[in-house]
C-alpha cells in the first residue's frame, strides 16, 4: 500500500513538472492529461532518466511517437515545422526535456526525501516494458500537438 501511494506521489510530481516545462520552455498551453492504455503501444521512443534514493530507484520517461518527438524537439529549439532536424538533435532535445522534468520532480520530492540524486538521461527507440516485479504508472499528457507518455517505474520493495 505504501509503495502504491508512493508511486502515485511521483506521478503527480511528474505531471506538475511536465506542465511547468511545457509552459515555460516550450511556450505551450497547460498540458491536459488522460490515463494511458495498458499495455502501452509498442513503438514509443523516449528519453529516460534515473532518480535514485538511498534504498530505491525510479526511472522516469517521456515517450512519444517519433513525429511527436520531432515536434517537441523543434518546439524546444525554436525551429519551424518544416525545418530539417537530425535524429541526434531530436534525441538530445528529448533528453533535455527529460532532464528538466526530472529536476522538477526532484525539487518537488526533496521535501519528502533529501537523499535523491538525479542521473543522466538516455534516449531509447522502442517502448519500455515493465515486468511483474516493477511498479509503474503511465499517463498521457497532451502538450501542443504532441501526446507525451509520462512513465515512472520502480522495482517493488522487498518484503
Amino acid at each position: 500500500m505504501t509503495a502504491v501511494l508512493g508511486i502515485s506521489q511521483w506521478r503527480d510530481s511528474m505531471l506538475e513538472a511536465t506542465d511547468e516545462v511545457a509552459q515555460s520552455s516550450l511556450m505551450l498551453d497547460a498540458v491536459t492529461v488522460r490515463e494511458a492504455p495498458s499495455p502501452l503501444p509498442r513503438d514509443l521512443p523516449g528519453s529516460y532518466i534515473p532518480l535514485v534514493g538511498e534504498d530505491y530507484n525510479y526511472e522516469f520517461g517521456l515517450a512519444a511517437k517519433w513525429e511527436h518527438c520531432e515536434y517537441l524537439a523543434k518546439t524546444l529549439l525554436f525551429m519551424d515545422p518544416g525545418d530539417e532536424i537530425s535524429d541526434d538533435d531530436i534525441a538530445d532535445a528529448m533528453n533535455e526535456l527529460a532532464n528538466m522534468v526530472g529536476g522538477g520532480v526532484k525539487k518537488r520530492m526533496a521535501e519528502i526525501d533529501t537523499t535523491l540524486k538525479l542521473g543522466l538521461p538516455a534516449f531509447f527507440n522502442g517502448t519500455v516494458h515493465p515486468t511483474a516485479e516493477q511498479e509503474h504508472v503511465c499517463v498521457i499528457a497532451t502538450a501542443g500537438e504532441a501526446e507525451i507518455y509520462l512513465i515512472a517505474l520502480k522495482h517493488k520493495a522487498p518484503l
Partner: peptide, 12 residues
C-alpha cells in the same frame, strides 16, 4: 552543457 540543445537555448 552536455546538451547541444541546451547550449543553443541558453545562448538564445
Amino acid at each position: 552543457d552536455d546538451s547541444k540543445a541546451m547550449r543553443m537555448i541558453v545562448m538564445r
